[in-house]
Design a protein around this nucleic acid. Sequence first.
DNA 1: TATTTGTACTTGCAAAACGCAAGCAAATTT
DNA 2: AAATTTGCTTGCGTTTTGCAAGTACAAATA
Lengths: 138, 138
Amino acid sequence: MATTKKRSECPISCSLDVWGDKWSLLIIRDLMLSKQCTYGDFLKSEEKIATNILAARLLMLEENSIISKLNHPDSKAKVLYKLTQKGIDLLPLMIEINLWADKYSTLPAERKAIVEEIKKDKEGFIKTQTKELKKVIL
Amino acid sequence: MATTKKRSECPISCSLDVWGDKWSLLIIRDLMLSKQCTYGDFLKSEEKIATNILAARLLMLEENSIISKLNHPDSKAKVLYKLTQKGIDLLPLMIEINLWADKYSTLPAERKAIVEEIKKDKEGFIKTQTKELKKVIL
DNA sequence: TATTTGTACTTGCAAAACGCAAGCAAATTT
DNA sequence: AAATTTGCTTGCGTTTTGCAAGTACAAATA
């Protein structure tokens, strides 16, 4: 089991107990950018997560209801992962990370474009993106 | 040296390279709640960080300009840690974590009170708190 | 002034987590 | 039927963590 003991009742601490490692938020990032990913899609990401670590994180995130599996429409061999509502609700947090990083470092062009869009209308971006991500749930 | 190699240019990944572990955001939380902390103050926190881990994280956060040291007014033996502007700018992120945790779990009463205040006027809360935290810089 | 206490760390070591490579079973393609 | 793809698991060496003890210096106490 990937279920860990809580260190305290603090909301920050409890949140970190779930996704506070070097990889979980990158998995969630991939799902926010791609809506749905296969196991292989995650492995293709730039940061090159190890396959055993990926399996462990996916299990952890699923146990904590942040992601869920669904059948791939084309093939039984493939598994699709998507964000649950709880996972989608991490979008504002993800946005703030991007804004912070934008303030203190140089972003790659394609990410910079997204951040500029967010800066223009943060609430609008969240609403639109949330709607897009929710479509996948159905 | 605590300086690690970047895994990619992704803003999420780069941010996680700096504070994406189980302890850094708890240190930052303590500084946001208390404005200034000594080494001993951090050790007193509920989560009971190990002293060697604390020293390593404080160094990492200082190297990345998120916190800085200052002389304690009363004693040469004591060291005060505070957030830099870069650290203070993590406040919106910290707030979103609290809001997310509030949505999916039960917060301790004193933290719940803060979250309710945030919900009433998020921007106002950020402005006020930022101003409070900046005072310590001077 | 000598001694004890407080504060900020460092060190040693066992345990856990990580990272890489290889392996494996079921599904799919050729 | 054989080869390939896909989603994992397993082994194993390395790194990080966590706990306990130790150290150096400042400050308080006797």
